[in-house]
Structures are given as C-alpha cells and as structure tokens.
Amino acid sequence: MRNTIRLMKIHAALYVMLIPVIIYFLVFVYYPLVRGVQLSFQADKLFGPKPYVGWDNYVTAWHDPEFWQVVRNTLIIGVGSLVAGFLPPIIIAVALNELLQITFKKFVQTVVYLPHLFSWVVIGGIWIYLLTPSGGLVNEIIKRLGGTSVGFLTDPTWARAVMILLPVWKGMGFAAIIYLASITSINPTLYEAARIDGANRFQQIYQITIPLLVPTMKVVLILDVLGLLRTFDQIYVMRNAVIQSKIDVLMVYVFDTGITNFKLGFASAVSVMVLVATLIITAITTVISRYEDQGG
C-alpha cells in the first residue's frame, strides 16, 4: 500500500497528463452512453421535461415494420459487402505480388488504394454521376455497346447491388495492401523449397501464400464485421425516394427518426438495441478468433 502511494507520487505528472483524455472519454463517450440509455426510456416532447415511459420506445420500434425493413437492409447490404469483398483484395494482393515490373506494381498499388482515402460524399457523388441513365459513363458505355440504359439507382434490386459492390470497390485496394504486406513478410525459402519440389505458381500460391494469410484474413474480417452495423455515410449520400425503403440502414434510420424527426427517445431505443447487438457480435467474433488461434 505504501509502495503504491509512493509510486503514485512519483508518477503524479503522468496522471496529470491523462486528465484531458479521461475527461474527454467520460464526457463524450461514457456519459452519452448512459444518457442514451436514459433517453431511450423517455417520451418524445419538443419542449419541457420528458416523462419516463418504460419500454414503450423499444416496443414501438419492435413492432414497427420499417425497423425490421432497415434491419433486413443492413444485413443484406452489410453481409453482402462482407462476402463480396472477401476474395478480391486477396486476389489483388497475390496478383500484385506476382508482378515483376516494380514501377507498374507501385502504380497499380497506388491507384487501387486511392478510393479508400476519399469520403463517401466524394465516392457517392462520383458514382451517382457515373450511374445516371443519361450522361452517366456506365450507361453511355452500355448504350454504345448496343444495350439499353439501366436505372442503377432507381431500380431497387440494382441499387442494392450497387450499395453492396461500391464498398468493395472502395475498400479492396486498402485490404489488398494489408495482405500484400503479409505476403512480403513470408519467408522466401518456403517458395524456394516448393519450387525445388516442382510446385508451379498456382500450387505455391495455394499451398503457401494462402494458408499464411489466414491470420491477416481474420483481422480484416473482424474489422469488417465490426463496421457492419455502423454504415451511414454511404447510404445517406446515395439514397433517393425510389430506393430509400430498400437501402436505408440502421444508422440512417436512427438519424432520420432521431435528428430529422426529432424522436430522440425512439431513436435512442433503436441505438441501444444496435449497441447490444454490436457487443454480442464483437464478443462472438473475439471468442471465435481466440479459439481458432489456440486450436490452430
């Protein structure tokens, strides 16, 4: 005990250093967390005190078909992107690794990485423009090839496909570079040995590179899973009246109900449910990856 106090005295300056950080986290993370839970049990009134209404907001959300529609949309778009986006970066990383011309390799690396840097306002703005039926690049190419233009952002099925594929397009360069970094750290003697054993390129990739990328895949997947329920910018920027009901995701729904329509309590109830779901998903992913680490 005395030792602890002595240490604390020695490190007094360190504690002082931490004060702003602690205050920030308390005021802007933990307090809002508690406040959000509190709000979720309160009625929505524009003026004056808000009475407590128990589980009303949760019950309303639970029985709101729109809520379930956005849950469905979130899962379809989120899981869709997750699945569609899993292989491309690995393929790109392997392809880049096989490339011998350094300049071109650097160039491709740079280019595929770029979209990841840009905001969804930029990416959304570009693709809304590229996908318009008249004057948009994609449809102009389709027309030139003899097809008829497609309402990519007005046909709900197409729009969902676009919402699933755009994050893949935006993020695959970034993930590819993470994979590439792991590939370059693979011991070259492994390939040497394989070559001596007569393994061809494909066999080397399949039998050496891919298995060694598994830990990286886990990291990338975990990051993706954790982001699944948080999607906001992309949908908010790209939605329109026709497709809205088929692409609106949970966070957009929270923003619409809570901020646009000012039902703070209702929106908080939805947020709390999503938060609980996030925590469960996080716990599950962590457990699975730990288990695999030990098992593997």
């Binding site: 309402g151 007005t154 046909d155 709900p156 009246a241 026709v242 809205q244 009901s245 329509n261």
Partner: peptide, 18 residues
C-alpha cells in the same frame, strides 16, 4: 415524413415502369 415518401416511392416505380 410519413406520406410523401410513400407517394414518391410507388409513384416513381409506376412512372419508371417498374
């Protein structure tokens, strides 16, 4: 918030021939 989005969604779908 409640009516216009519905009129828009289905009205536009009809107009677009969907």
């Amino acid at each position: 918030t409640d009516v216009q989005p519905i009129l828009d969604e289905f009205g536009l779908k009809a107009m677009l021939g969907q």
